[in-house]
Amino acid sequence: MTSLLRVENLSKAYLHKGRWWAPKRIRALNNVSFDLESGQTLAIMGETGSGKSSLAKIIAGAERPSSGTVYLRGEPLKAQDYRFRCRHIRMVFQDTDASLNPHLTIGRQLEEPLLFNTHLSSAQRRETVSEALLKVGLLPEHAVFHSHMMSTGQKQRACIARAIMLNPDVIVADEALAALDSSIRAQIINLLLDLQRDMKMSYVFVSHSPEIIRHVADKVMIMRHGEIVTYEDTASVFNKPADGYTESLLQQTYTLS
């Protein structure tokens, strides 16, 4: 059986404007490969600049890889083919304020994926939007709200509603929990776990917090300098960290939080 998500030799280099004939090349990812099974949760950890965000963005399609391919059930995903990708892989961003359009109502924004990827009538679309809002613990009435009328937790719920709109297989969350305070964070984690149970989705979490990872993840990937240091089951990573870097990463955040 082919795995749900397979990443092969993914590399990403950013060009920084130096002198124009010799732009500086910064390697964010270096030949990263891994598999993810359906229904599993992968957590990506690493120090700042280790390439974890780049990896998440490339999987979600927000960035193009310099080389390498992402396969979904054995099918390669093209970097610019948003229509196909968005039916299977969706993203939740870190900054809830910035990821909702201040000029459109929540309903209009949730409708977008339906408008362009399904043939539903406007009444059916509205129905689907209110179902999704109920699923994430909001009311159908929130569809007519603008994002500035909602609290941070509600905004994050709306973002999650947008992500589950097309019943995706994978949701990529790039530090989606970092900006929330602890009580809301707990609510959102429980919401995500409930959704995973109901909709059989896989998650790719980028996170700093070992507690959350221990709670939600099946597998943990530790990254450093754009390469995978460890890719193992959560229990074994936490019980006997393979090296000093992993240990300090888990340790350090323990003492901070």
């Binding site: 979600a60 399609g61 927000a62 948003y82 229509r83 990708r85 968005c86 039916r87 969706r90 993203m91 961003f93 900054d95 910035a98 990821s99 909702l100 359009n101 201040p102 459109l104 924004q109 977008e112 994926p113 408008l115 362009f116 990827n117 973002c159 947008r162």
Partner: peptide, 22 residues
């Protein structure tokens, strides 16, 4: 390069919709 524009693009919207509505 705002996040909501990237989010809309990831929704698979057309270029015209992206420009005129988003």
């Amino acid at each position: 390069h705002r996040e909501y524009v990237i989010a809309s693009r990831l929704n698979g919207v057309s270029q015209w919709y992206l420009l005129s509505v988003v």
